[in-house]
Nucleic acid binder design. Structure first.
Length: 917
RNA sequence: GGGUGGUUAGCUCAGCCGGUUAGAGCGCCUGCCUCACAUGCAGGAGGUCGCAGGUUCGAGUCCUGCACCGCCCACCA
C-alpha cells in the first residue's frame, strides 16, 4: 500500500492528487492512486463502525476464504458484490459492517502442509501430532493473511479490526460451547455407521463432502452357488467388496426366489455361508433381483444387515488396501483387488456377465479420490430437530433467497436432512472436547478438565479426532461477533442482514448457519441470502487452478485497476446464473473508467476554479404539468434550459433505477444504469450540447448542472468503482463536497427533478439529429461539408419549439443551419427521413454531394460488389469447396454472401435516391 | 429417477405485469485523430426469439409437450 500522506496533508478544498483546474493525462491511470486512497480510508476508520447506540446497523459477514487460498475470480465477484452493498448502505447512513475473516479449512490446509512436508521427505507421523499442528500454525502465520492483502487491493471495505479466523481463541470457545450444548441436549452422538471415507486423506467425510460424479462403470454378475446345484446370481459394481459379503437379499414378494429365502448361498472364492434373507429394500426390477449384502461396505447393506442380524466383515484397511480378512487378496489396493477378483471369478466359472453401468461415484471434495463407504466409529449431529426452525424461516419469509428459486433447494435439503458426520481423523482443527476417564466415564467439557467430573479420576484421555471445518463455519455470523458472550458487537451487529455466496455452499454452510443461528441465538442469522453464479471461462468451464484457465484478479488489477475489475465483474454477473469471462471483458471496465475520467477532465477544463455552483432547482408543479401549461411556460425558457433539465430528469430516473435494482439485489443492473447514464446521456449528449451552452447567457446554470450531474453520478458509482470516484470527487469545487470523502458522503436520492416535458422534447431532438446524421453517413458526405437541414413539422407549436433549438440541431447534426418548415419539400434530389409525430428531416443532396460524382462512385461500387458476390456464390456452388473447406470457412463465405446481397440492395437504393423525383 | 436453470444478433447476455419498430456490450463494416476521451466519435449491417401445438384482439413473454445443454439432489446393488 502506498503512503497515504500526500493525500492527508492536503488543505481542505485543495485537491492535491489532481492539479488544480484539471485531472492529469488523457488516460486514467489507476496504479498510483488506489493504494493511497485505501490506506487513507482505512486510516480514518471508515471501515470500522462503532458498536452500541447509533444509526441502524447493516452487517455482512464474508464467506471466509480458506486460509490456504489465493484470491480467485470467484472471491473477487463475491466480495465485490458484498462491498457494493456495504458501501451503498454506509453512504445511506447505516453503520455498515463488513466483517472479514478466514477459515482454517481443516483437510485442505492439512493437505497443503503435508505436501510441503513430503517435499522434505517427511510425513506428519514423523513430526507427531503436536509438532505437526505447530507447523500448520507456522504456515498460517506466514501465508494466512495473503488473501487479506488481495482483498484490500480490490478495495473491499472490510473492518480489518474485526477480522476473525475460525481457530481464533474466541471462535474456538464458541465451537466448544456449541458442541457441549449439543452433547448435553443429546444432539451429538457417537456410533459405528457407514460413512464416506477418503482413503487418501485418511478421514471420514460428511455426505456433502463426498461429491457425486457420474461415471460409466461396470456391473458384474456373479453366481453364488446354493446347495443342490442351483445358484443365485447377484450384481455388483464393486466386486472386491464381495469378500465382505455376509448374506444375500431378495424381495419378499419375488416369486423367483421364494424357495431360496432361509437357505444359504456359498460365497465364491471365500466359501462363507451366506444366509438368504427377504428384505423390502431390494428392487426386483434391478439387476437380477438378488443382492449380495456387505454390511461393512455399503450403507444400504448395513441396514439390511441390521434388520437381519448379519455379520459385518470389513475387508478394507483405512488406506483402501485389502486387509487380512480379504485372505489371499490381502495387501492389494482396492482396484487391483477388483481386477484380480474378477479374473478369479471368471477362471472359476462364477462370473456370469459384465455390463456397462452408468452410476454416480463419490469423490473426496478436497483431493478427488474415490471415497469408500466405510464402517467406522464417528461423531454425528442429529439434524432433524435443528432443521425445523431453519425450515420454518424459509417458509414464513423470515429468510429470503435471491433468486427466489433457491428457497426450494434449501427446503428440500432440510426436509431430507440426514445426520451430520462431524468427526475427522486429521490433526488440524478443533479437537473434539470429549474425554474418557480411566474408569470409562465419557463427558464433554467447555474447559480442558483436570479430572473426571463423575469419579474424580485424573486419568483422562481426550478424543483424538477433530471437528469438521464446517462445524466452526456454521457459527460464523455470531461467533465472529463475540458469542457466546453478550458483547456489544453481538448486540449491535447481530443478526446480520445480507449473506452473499455461491450456490455450491448452500448446504455446507448457509443452511447450517441458519440451524446454528436458531439453536445458539434463537434468531435467524441473516434476512437475505443472495446467491450469485459461478465464474467460468469463455468456454463455460469452471475456472480452476487444475484446469489452468483461471484469470488472476491480481493481474487484472495490475493491468487495468481494481475499479475496472469490479465494474466488469458486477456487470457481467447476471442475477444468479453463471457468468462467462474472457480476459478481454475487463477492457470494457477499463474503458468505462477512462471515459469517466475524461468526462471529469472536460468538466474541470470548463469550470473555473473559483466557480461557485448553485444547486439546480427542483421542478415546481407547473413545470411538470400538462402539455398546455408546460408548453406555455417553456416558451419562456432559454435554448439550453430544456437540455439542462433533461439531464437532471435523467439523473433522477437513473437514481431511482439504481435504488430499485440494489433493493432487489440486481447489482449488475444498477451498475448498468449508471454506465448508460454517464456514457450515453451525460457524455454523448449532454457534454456535446454544453459545448455551445457554456458560452450562452445562462452558462453558469449549465456549469452548475454539469457539476451536479458529475458529482451525483460519482456518488452513485462509488460503491462499484470506489477509487476513481474518490479521486475525481476530491477535485470537485469544495462547496459540492460536504464530507471529507465520497465514501462517507450521503447516498443520493431523487432530487425532484421531474421534467417529463423537456425530456420528451430532447428525445425528439435526439431523434431528429440522429436521422440527419444518418442521411450524411448514407450519402457519404465529406466531414467538412455543411448544408442546410430541413426539418418539417405540420404543427405550429412544434415548429416554434424546434426553431428555438435550431442552432443546436444544426451543430450536432453537422448542418450549416436548420430550416424549420411546415412541409417537406419533394423532388429536386431531396432525401427524407421520417422521425415521428409527423416530423421529417430532409436534405438536398445537391447541397451535400456532387450528384454526378456520387452516382459514378456508387455505380462503380455496385459493380465491385456484384463481382465479389458472383465469386462468392460461385464458391458456394462448388461441391469440392463445400466438401473440403473447414466448416467455419464455408460458414464465413455464406455470411459474406448475405452481407454482400444486403450491401447491394442498399447501394441500389442510394442510386435511386440521387435521381430527382 | 426427482428437481432445477438455460436455449433471443457471430460471441456474452438483458428483455420485469402479454402491448409501439425485440435491446446492450464485445466483435464486424463505413467514415472520422471534431481542441474531455482513438481506451474515442458518428453511422450501419446482422435476429423464423430451440422445435411443435395451445390460450389471446395481440405471445421471447402465459400454458402443454418435445429436443438439446447445464447444475443440484438421490440408499437400485
Amino acid at each position: 500500500m502506498t503512503d497515504p500522506s500526500p493525500a492527508t496533508e492536503r488543505a481542505p478544498g485543495q485537491p492535491a492528487a489532481p492539479p488544480p483546474g484539471g485531472l492529469p493525462g488523457r488516460r486514467y491511470d489507476p496504479s498510483a492512486l488506489e493504494g493511497r486512497w485505501y490506506a487513507l480510508w482505512r486510516g480514518r476508520g471508515y471501515f470500522h463502525p462503532p458498536a452500541g447506540e447509533g444509526p441502524d446497523p447493516y452487517t455482512i459477514v464474508i464467506p471466509p476464504p480458506n486460509v490456504t487460498g489465493v484470491l480467485h475470480m470467484g472471491h473477487a465477484l463475491n466480495t465485490t458484490l458484498q462491498d457494493v452493498l456495504v458501501r451503498q448502505r454506509r453512504m445511506a447512513g447505516h453503520r455498515a459492517l463488513y466483517l472479514p475473516g478466514t477459515d482454517h479449512a481443516g483437510i485442505a490446509t492439512q493437505n497443503v502442509v503435508e505436501r510441503e512436508l513430503a517435499d522434505e521427505g517427511l510425513s506428519r507421523d514423523d513430526l507427531g501430532r503436536e509438532a505437526f499442528v505447530d507447523r500448520v500454525w507456522a504456515w498460517r502465520e506466514k501465508y494466512g493473511d495473503e488473501i487479506y492483502d488481495q482483498l484490500m487491493q480490490l478495495g473491499i471495505s472490510c473492518d480489518w479490526e474485526r477480522a476473525r479466523f475460525t481457530m481464533d481463541p474466541g471462535l474456538s470457545r464458541a465451537v466448544r460451547e456449541v458442541f457441549v450444548r449439543l452433547y448435553d441436549d443429546g444432539l451429538v452422538y457417537r456410533g459405528k455407521y457407514i460413512i464416506h471415507w477418503c482413503p487418501r486423506c485418511g478421514t471420514a467425510l460428511s455426505d456433502e463432502e463426498a461429491e457425486k460424479h457420474d461415471t460409466t462403470g461396470r456391473l458384474y454378475y456373479v453366481r453364488y452357488p446354493v446347495h443342490g446345484g442351483i445358484h443365485v446370481v447377484v450384481a455388483t459394481t464393486r466386486p472386491e467388496t464381495m469378500l465382505g459379503d455376509t448374506g444375500v437379499a431378495v424381495h419378499p414378494d419375488d416369486p423367483r426366489f421364494r424357495d431360496l429365502v432361509g437357505r444359504t448361498a456359498v460365497l465364491p472364492l471365500v466359501g462363507r455361508a451366506l444366509p438368504i434373507v427377504a428384505d423390502d429394500f431390494v428392487d426386483p426390477q434391478f439387476g437380477t433381483g438378488a443382492v449380495k449384502v456387505t454390511p461393512a461396505h455399503d450403507p444400504n447393506d448395513f441396514w439390511i444387515g441390521e434388520r437381519h442380524g448379519l455379520e459385518r466383515v470389513n475387508v478394507l484397511n483405512p488406506d483402501a488396501t485389502m486387509n487380512e480378512a480379504a485372505g489371499r487378496f490381502a495387501g492389494l489396493d482396492r482396484f487391483e483387488a477388483r481386477r484380480q477378483i474378477v479374473a478369479a471369478l471368471e477362471e472359476e466359472g462364477y462370473l456370469e456377465k459384465v455390463e456397462d453401468h452408468a452410476h454416480a461415484v463419490g469423490r473426496c471434495y478436497r483431493c478427488g479420490t474415490v471415497v469408500e463407504p466405510y464402517l467406522s466409529d464417528q461423531w454425528f449431529v442429529r439434524m432433524k430437530p435443528l432443521a425445523e426452525p431453519a425450515l420454518a424461516a424459509a417458509r414464513d419469509g423470515t429468510l429470503r433467497f435471491t433468486p427466489q428459486r433457491w428457497t426450494k433447494v434449501y427446503e428440500h435439503w432440510l426436509e431430507n436432512v440426514r445426520d451430520w458426520c462431524i468427526s475427522r481423523q486429521i490433526w488440524w482443527g478443533h479437537r473434539i472436547p470429549v474425554w474418557t476417564c480411566g474408569r470409562g466415564h465419557v463427558f464433554a467439557a467447555r474447559e480442558d478438565p483436570d479430572r473426571c467430573p463423575e469419579c474424580g479420576s485424573a486419568e483422562l484421555q481426550q478424543e483424538t479426532d477433530v471437528l469438521d471445518t464446517w462445524f466452526s463455519a456454521w457459527l460464523w455470523p455470531f461467533s465472529t461477533l463475540g458469542w457466546p458472550d453478550e458483547t456489544e458487537d453481538l448486540a449491535t451487529f447481530y443478526p446480520t442482514q445480507t449473506l452473499v455466496t455461491g450456490a455450491e455452499i448452500l448446504f455446507f454452510w448457509v443452511a447450517r448457519m441458519v440451524m446454528a443461528g436458531y439453536y445458539c441465538t434463537g434468531r435467524c442469522p441473516f434476512t437475505d441470502v443472495v446467491i450469485h453464479g459461478t465464474v467460468r471461462d469463455e468456454r463455460g468451464r469452471r475456472m480452476s487452478k487444475s484446469l489452468g484457465n483461471g484469470i488472476d484478479p491480481r493481474e487484472v488489477i495490475a493491468e487495468h485497476g481494481a475499479d475496472a475489475l469490479r465494474f466488469t465483474l458486477v456487470t457481467a454477473a447476471p442475477t444468479g446464473t453463471d457468468l462467462q469471462l474472457a480476459p478481454d471483458h475487463f477492457i470494457a471496465g477499463r474503458n468505462f473508467a477512462n471515459k469517466l475520467w475524461n468526462a471529469a477532465r472536460f468538466v474541470f477544463l470548463n469550470v473555473p476554479e473559483s466557480f461557485a455552483p448553485s444547486p439546480p432547482e427542483k421542478a415546481r408543479p407547473e413545470d411538470a404539468g400538462t402539455d398546455g401549461a408546460g408548453a406555455d411556460r417553456e416558451t419562456a425558457g432559454d435554448e439550453q434550459e430544456a437540455v439542462d433539465r433533461w439531464i437532471l430528469h435523467r439523473l433522477d430516473e437513473t437514481t431511482r433505477a439504481v435504488d430499485a435494482s440494489l433493493a432487489a439485489f440486481r447489482i449488475g443492473d444498477a451498475a448498468g444504469a449508471i454506465y448508460s447514464f454517464l456514457w450515453h446521456d451525460y457524455c454523448d449528449w449532454y457534454i456535446e450540447w454544453c459545448k455551445a451552452g457554456l458560452d450562452r447567457p445562462h452558462g453558469d446554470r449549465t456549469r452548475s448542472v454539469l457539476l451536479t450531474g458529475l458529482e451525483r453520478s460519482l456518488r452513485l458509482l462509488h460503491p462499484f468503482m470506489p477509487f476513481i470516484t474518490e479521486e475525481i470527487w476530491q477535485a470537485l469545487p469544495a462547496p459540492l463536497r460536504a464530507a471529507e470523502s465520497i465514501m462517507i458522503e450521503e447516498w443520493p436520492g431523487p432530487a425532484g427533478w421531474d421534467y417529463p416535458e423537456e425530456a420528451g422534447r430532447v428525445a425528439l431532438m435526439q431523434e431528429i439529429i440522429g436521422r440527419a446524421r444518418n442521411l450524411r453517413a448514407e450519402y457519404g458526405v465529406p466531414p467538412g461539408r455543411r448544408a442546410p437541414l430541413i426539418v418539417a413539422a405540420a404543427e405550429p407549436k412544434a415548429r416554434e419549439e424546434l426553431a428555438r433549438h435550431a442552432a443546436d440541431i444544426a451543430r450536432l447534426a453537422g448542418a450549416s443551419e436548420t430550416r424549420v418548415v411546415p412541409d417537406t419539400p419533394r423532388g429536386d434530389g431531396t432525401v427524407v427521413q421520417v422521425v415521428r409525430g409527423g416530423i421529417e428531416v430532409a436534405v438536398r443532396l445537391a447541397d451535400l454531394v456532387d450528384v454526378d460524382k456520387e452516382r459514378e462512385r456508387l455505380t462503380s461500387e455496385i459493380r465491385r460488389t456484384e463481382a465479389l458476390l458472383g465469386s462468392t456464390r460461385h464458391k458456394l456452388a462448388d461441391r469440392e469447396f463445400i466438401a473440403r473447406a473447414p466448416d467455419e470457412v464455408v460458414e464465413r463465405e455464406r455470411r459474406k454472401a448475405v452481407d454482400l446481397e444486403g450491401a447491394l440492395e442498399r447501394l441500389n437504393d442510394l442510386v435511386a435516391a440521387l435521381e430527382p423525383r
